[in-house]
Design a protein around this nucleic acid. Structure first.
Lengths: 235, 235
DNA sequence: GCTCATTTGTTCGTATGTATG
DNA sequence: TCATACATACGAACAAATGAG
């Protein structure tokens, strides 16, 4: 949309380099990064310049410093760090409604743009969901479910949608939404219908399937919480 | 959920203070903030400490420094700053598809939750749109259009949706989407249909109206940017 | 083009606070 | 108690960019 032809300051370039190490996965989340003295030497910058860059990463939420201990990685991308801050202040219903919006759009676009290879992967993860649903390993189900959603996002060929989705919901957040439900519930409601619609490239049916499973998850919360919904919700 | 009452670092506290001045509107967007020397004195901190705070705000995107000139306010909230960064790397089509997702959800929710007072405001802005559409003052139209969208978002009673929408699209960004179109085009396509549906509390028709006007704006870009499916924004 | 004051950018030196063992 | 490793903070100096005259 825009072009960026900024002239970067030295501490800005250091910030970018460090950020790349984090988003690139070379510095894992939770790990301690090298001490200031070492980074100064490796980067060839002074103490203050390095500290300005680190302070920037701390404020964005990618790093956390503990005096007398070290500096640690706390998140992997600017987007997810800031969005997590915001998400922590919102209700489950609000989050579900946002997920509804993104899932619908992605499902419709995936119908138009998906490849056969992507369809195969969706079916693979859907199968995995069914297999792990009643098993003892809840994390395995959440992984499969998450991967299914992400695969659909990717098939929409919209990086913006995907980035936002991954930053907003993360495996961890998704599982929070799910943890409120009692075991035995059919969590995979709508998966088969959704994938079938994507296979047939039928956006209408795909969106209907999304409506169904979101409403299924939303219903319990509408009874308990009621901050913002006066009338009953449709059909 | 507990807040973080950890002891903040000095530069962290300065960061927060400066941020409040920005989000609180005391430092307007585009204006130049006091020089470092003055801020040092007012805040009672050393230059390095102050600079670490300022650098943090620069990296988040709230400030911009120009050597030899000064430091300027560039955004009013962390969310919009980070999101703007991300939006600048995305195509118009991607942005429109995201707007589609959010508009649809908000329209459907607004049908269920809107008050009569909100409906009046929608009709007011819609009327304003019609009146200013063919006038000389393009900004007046964009203002009215933006206000209409925001009113619908507010009527959805979902603060998360609203915050995201405002941060993502801002008056300025919206106008960029529109500036590509030649004057004379019917920009208010779908407004009457949308509001009519919200008045009748009919989600299906409301979403259909959103589909219509988004498609109307999207069509020209699908021709130009043809294979809307090329994964772009690498970096 | 040049000078000059202004403002941010960068570096160094030094001292202090804090966690770990 | 002590030593060590690390981040925190301050002050002073010089470099580089900008804008005005």
């Amino acid at each position: 949309m825009f072009e960026k032809l900024e002239k970067q300051t030295l501490s800005g370039r250091v910030y970018t380099q460090l950020q790349r190490l984090i988003t690139g996965g070379e510095w894992k989340i939770g790990s301690r990064i090298p001490r200031e003295a070492d980074l100064m030497e490796q980067l060839g910058v002074s103490r203050n310049t390095l500290r300005e860059a680190i302070r920037g990463l701390v404020q964005v939420g990618l790093l956390e410093t503990r005096q007398g201990d070290g500096t640690f990685v706390t998140a992997s991308s600017e987007l997810s760090a800031i969005l997590n801050k915001r998400m922590s202040r919102s209700s489950v219903i609000e989050a579900l409604e946002l997920q509804h919006a993104l899932d619908r759009e992605a499902a419709a676009l995936a119908c138009l743009r998906r490849t056969d290879e992507e369809l195969e992967r969706m079916e693979h993860y859907s199968k995995l969901c069914r297999e792990t649903l009643d098993g003892p390993d809840h994390d395995a189900y959440k992984d499969a479910d998450w991967n299914l959603h992400v695969t659909i996002m990717k098939a929409s060929r919209n990086r913006l949608l995907l980035d936002l989705y991954e930053s907003l919901f993360e495996k961890l957040q998704i599982s929070i939404l799910f943890n409120r439900f009692i075991p035995g519930t059919r969590y995979d409601v709508g998966h088969p219908a959704l994938i079938s619609a994507i296979r047939d490239r039928d956006p209408e049916r795909a969106m209907q399937a999304v409506d169904d499973y979101i409403m299924h998850f939303k219903a319990p919360h509408l009874e308990a919480d009621d901050p913002a919904n006066s009338p009953r919700n449709g059909e």
